[in-house]
């Protein structure tokens, strides 16, 4: 490429080469380019700066930019790997990669652990689970008696917290998830298998020689 700076690089700060991204992920080069079509549309939905802000992420998830949701916030924070307050294209592809059907259950399990370890202590603590449970109940307008919430937490921790120290470590989480595989269902997006069909316009915007795809 020499000194040539592509239009894409100038318009999209942090835009990484599709071939490099494909080599780091389960995506093919064409799939990375199709994801770029999705990225362009999300990152220009509020401010056309080539980066995804939290507001744009919420808008894409809920079709409503004002909707606050602790889970969406947590996902955003995990996607924002460089902790810049925005998601660049490389972050976007690498984070979505975890949701690819071909990625190992081990990687999905680790990502889910980080997701639920809201305070980043290396443990999923009872108060974090309670906070998430209450947020879910509010979101879905379900009302549960305090005793029921405590009973659900007791049951969950009895099952998951093997050494009964009041918090779930990564080994306990791994064990718990292996006994409850449905918990990782949200970690797989079948859409990612057909991403080139969903965003066929990538073909017209491709910057990569066909040979490389």
């Amino acid at each position: 490429m020499g000194c040539f700076q592509s239009k894409v690089t100038r318009q999209y700060p942090g835009h990484e080469d599709p071939i490099t991204l494909a080599s780091q992920t389960a995506f093919s080069v064409s799939e990375v380019e199709a994801l770029f079509e999705l990225y362009k549309s999300i990152s220009s939905s509020v401010i056309d700066d080539g980066l995804i802000s939290k507001e744009e992420f919420q808008l894409a998830l809920f079709k409503n930019r004002k909707k606050e949701n602790i889970f969406a916030n947590r996902i955003f924070d995990l996607f924002d790997a460089k902790k810049k307050g925005v998601i660049d294209f490389g972050d976007f592809v690498r984070a979505l990669n975890v949701f690819h059907p071909n990625v190992s259950q081990e990687d999905k399990m680790t990502f889910a652990f980080k997701l639920y370890d809201m305070d980043g202590t290396g443990f999923i603590e009872r108060n974090e689970v309670k906070q998430m449970l209450i947020a879910l109940l509010c979101e879905s307008e379900m009302k549960l008696a305090d005793e029921t919430i405590e009973a659900i937490l007791d049951k969950t921790f009895l099952d998951a917290d093997i050494n009964q120290d009041g918090k779930i470590d990564i080994a306990e989480w791994q064990n718990f998830v292996s006994r409850n595989p449905s918990l990782l269902k949200i970690m797989t997006l079948p859409y990612l298998r057909d991403i080139t069909t969903t965003f066929p316009s990538f073909v017209f915007n491709s910057e990569v020689d066909e040979v490389a795809t």
Partner: peptide, 26 residues
């Protein structure tokens, strides 16, 4: 109705905020 025997993570994983498939809906 949510039975008290339900696992907390099963409930949490039903959050709309964790369902990234909506990112792909145009």
């Amino acid at each position: 109705r949510v039975p008290a025997t339900m696992n907390a993570f099963e409930l949490i994983s039903t959050s709309q905020g964790l369902n990234l498939s909506s990112l792909f809906e145009k």
